[in-house]
Computed example of a mutant assay.
Amino acid sequence: MTISREDVLAARDRIVGRVRRTPLLAPSGRDTVWLKCEHLQHCGVFKTRGAFNRQLAALEHGELGDAGIVVASGGNAGLAQAFAASELGIRATVFVPEAAPGVKVRLIEAYGAEVRRTGREYAEAHEAAVVFGQQQGATFVHAYDQPDVAAGAGTLAEEVLEDEPTIDTIVVAVGGGGLYAGVAAAVRGRARVVAVEPELAPTLRRAMEAGEPVDVAVSGVAADSLGARRIGDLAFAAQQAEPPVSVLVSDDHIVAARHRLWHEHRIASEHGAATAMAALLSGAYVPEHGERVAVVVCGANTDPTTLA
């Protein structure tokens, strides 16, 4: 299962007018790091792109029935799918782990979706969502590992290179890998991709070492958004087509990057979104002299009182 740039371009055409074209914040002084401000996307997360692409494609193909869609999510995917469903008049049921952040659950419910808390981890919520879809006839939407979802995410990379064609490298956080797979498809042959994971949730790194996706133990400050237990097939195929620069960062570095984004840029990012920036600030990824780097700040669904 793979996606191509053509899939990303088709997604871009499908979702135009439904999502925001988020700004690319230019560097200052001698800095050569741009920030793709995807935290300003509808719902405060990049996943809104894939949500609209998946649901609009399902409508085009006649896949949707009265039961609407069902998705499992640590929070952000459910939020994005609930928002898209509300905009398109589609019923949505969202399964979340019991530990899903309350701020995200409340927003999901505010968009009219039914929320069902199931299990301690995303994987358990995922299994319950699959069963629900089979029993109720709801169309299953994967949080990250479906071509339409990943291709939608990849549209942000198209924007990056349209706004600044001289970008050499795009740095993205990796959980289940939908964003990475979409970005990799969009920029293959045009820019390098740095795939950044928390040390406590290294799904892509372990898959690359094992030669296949494998389960890993998941914990840490970014587990609510980067908490998939296994890398998706799309992301694994993407690294086979063109290996990324794989980087791991500690929880301490993620926390420090999140505070840096707030204090220097007034960007209220969640820990998962700060993971990409942590690779640069910690020195885990050191750009070459003159390398022009864009860091994707992919989500803002966090408790702002923790940013002081």
Results as ranks from 00 to 15, higher is better:
residue 232 G to I: 10
residue 130 V to P: 05
residue 187 V to M: 06
residue 294 A to F: 02
residue 98 E to F: 01
residue 2 T to P: 00
residue 208 M to P: 03
residue 160 V to D: 00
residue 178 G to T: 13
residue 23 P to V: 02
residue 34 W to V: 11
residue 25 L to A: 01
residue 39 H to A: 06
residue 14 R to G: 08
residue 166 T to R: 14
residue 94 V to W: 11
residue 262 W to H: 12
residue 2 T to W: 03
residue 5 R to A: 12
residue 192 R to I: 00
residue 219 S to N: 07
residue 80 A to T: 02
residue 12 R to E: 04
residue 304 P to Y: 04
residue 203 T to D: 06
residue 134 Q to Y: 00
residue 173 A to K: 02
residue 74 G to K: 01
residue 138 A to M: 05
residue 215 D to P: 01
residue 144 Y to M: 04
residue 226 L to N: 02
residue 223 A to P: 03
residue 97 P to F: 05
residue 217 A to V: 14
residue 23 P to T: 04
residue 47 K to Y: 05
residue 210 A to S: 14
residue 24 L to F: 11
residue 147 P to K: 11
residue 306 T to H: 11
residue 307 L to T: 05
residue 87 E to D: 03
residue 235 A to I: 14
residue 88 L to Q: 03
residue 239 Q to T: 15
residue 180 Y to S: 09
residue 50 G to N: 05
residue 268 A to F: 10
residue 170 I to A: 10
residue 181 A to G: 02
residue 224 D to R: 06
residue 115 V to Y: 13
residue 281 L to E: 15
residue 172 V to I: 07
residue 259 H to D: 14
residue 260 R to N: 02
residue 76 N to K: 11
residue 136 Q to L: 03
residue 256 A to R: 09
residue 295 V to E: 01
residue 228 A to E: 09
residue 266 R to S: 05
residue 114 E to G: 00
residue 120 R to I: 10
residue 21 R to I: 10
residue 131 V to R: 14
residue 45 V to F: 11
residue 239 Q to S: 15
residue 84 A to Y: 14
residue 240 Q to H: 11
residue 197 E to K: 09
residue 41 Q to P: 05
residue 144 Y to C: 03
residue 144 Y to V: 06
residue 4 S to Y: 09
residue 255 V to M: 12
residue 20 R to C: 04
residue 306 T to R: 13
residue 152 G to F: 12
residue 154 G to S: 09
residue 276 A to E: 00
residue 79 L to W: 12
residue 33 V to G: 03
residue 78 G to E: 06
residue 74 G to W: 07
residue 149 V to L: 06
residue 190 R to K: 15
residue 112 G to F: 11
residue 221 V to H: 13
residue 288 E to W: 00
residue 306 T to A: 11
residue 219 S to P: 02
residue 237 A to C: 01
residue 58 A to G: 04
residue 220 G to M: 12
residue 14 R to W: 07
residue 261 L to D: 08
residue 185 A to S: 13
residue 219 S to Q: 10
residue 109 E to H: 08
residue 102 G to L: 12
residue 257 A to Y: 01
residue 184 A to L: 14
residue 152 G to A: 08
residue 89 G to F: 07
residue 304 P to S: 01
residue 2 T to V: 12
residue 268 A to R: 01
residue 202 P to S: 11
residue 153 A to C: 13
residue 122 Y to L: 15
residue 215 D to S: 08
residue 182 G to C: 11
residue 234 L to Y: 09
residue 181 A to S: 07
residue 209 E to Y: 05
residue 219 S to L: 04
residue 287 P to H: 07
